[in-house]
Write a protein that binds this DNA or RNA. Structure first.
Lengths: 196, 196
DNA sequence: TTTGAAAATGAGCGTTTGCTCACTTATCTT
DNA sequence: AAGATAAGTGAGCAAACGCTCATTTTCAAA
């Protein structure tokens, strides 16, 4: 018996993430991936059934990693404001520290592969955030609202900021830079809108 | 001389939009498009230089259409709250009435093709919204902030809601449905956060 | 009615795609 | 040392890819 070389499967995974993040999902291919990972195309099919399986498997792994990072130091008993701030810091830190993973994830979230991925991850989100939001409503900190409305108001602005930062786009003349100061400024707007 | 058949070029454009919206950018191809549009592959190259030119051209057209629709009944002299509500209604109406265009646009905004597209459109956005925001700041309705922060707080939640609606995802048990009531509820949160 | 020029095409080019197979290599157990 | 088994591979298949070209079709101008 021969043991599997963990360096190999890791090289495949990391190359896939980097390739999708940098060249886009539309330019991702198995032969290309094999070359980038320094591996035979056939080797990839030892670990993954096909191209779709590879992409969805990796995206679920990365998504769970992201969800976990998001919950560091978070408890559903926290006050609404404190809890949301912890979430923002965690999410921003993850997106900036692991920006290849974050961009890979974004690519898949906007693709035909998204269904299985979202399904696998929304449970973790649901169970962690459900109680937190419910507690905040019970305590009278925020109004009752659909979870989708909550997510859209509470997190979409943050991810939009990160996107502006990563893409280096600018709506004005100078280039936009994400910073703790900008994040706090945006957070203050958001929390003001959410609190009763 | 033979005149160009406008039905043909329109069929190409509409098929391209539908195909990208439904199957994703990663499954879009010229031969496939030709078949769907009822046209020879060679015909496509009469109107577009290559695949990239086709996608960027169409995305710029659709983007400008979207920007125009967004400004219907809008004036940069409006009060901040009234102006933003007009924008929300216009943007939501466009996204729901032309959901293939909107999904096509979203696909390209998250791809390697985005650069030329964003460049072409952000001017129109800039000139229309710049004054409006500046006026609101001068009148003391909102605080001064980077345009990116403004966009992220003012519009990202709306687009997030539309995405939940179109993708039929749900964060909870029942399926989420976008409605004027939900939109107003979300708008109230956002405007409360933005106004001084 | 003829003619010229642009529109439109089907066949198919060279390349790349996702994926497989016959085979070699490495490492365990005996 | 030999045998067994899974890891890993290079070459390459069929199909699909982006794109072109020799040719035909169309129609306003002459």
């Amino acid at each position: 018996m021969r043991y599997r070389d963990e360096n190999k499967v890791q090289a495949i995974r990391e190359s896939a993430i980097a390739m999708v993040a940098k060249d886009g999902l539309e330019n991702f291919g198995i032969n290309r991936l094999a070359k980038a990972a320094g591996v035979s195309p056939a080797t990839i099919y030892i670990y993954y059934k096909d191209k779709e399986d590879l992409l969805t498997s990796i995206s679920i792994e990365e998504g769970l990693k992201m969800t976990t990072a998001t919950l560091k130091g978070f408890s559903s008993d926290m006050s609404f404001k404190e809890g949301l701030w912890v979430q923002w810091k965690n999410r921003a830190a993850f997106a900036l520290d692991n920006h290849l993973s974050a961009e890979f994830f974004e690519q898949l979230r906007n693709s035909t592969y998204k269904d299985k991925m979202v399904e696998a991850i929304s449970d973790a989100f649901q169970s962690a955030m459900g109680n937190y939001v419910k507690n905040a409503i019970d305590r009278g900190e925020i109004n009752e609202m659909p979870l989708e409305v909550y997510w859209s108001v509470a997190f979409a602005p943050l991810y939009s900021l990160i996107k502006f930062h990563n893409e280096g786009q600018s709506l004005g003349g100078r280039k936009f830079k994400f910073s703790e100061k900008v994040m706090k400024e945006t957070f203050d707007c958001v929390i003001k809108g959410l609190l009763k």
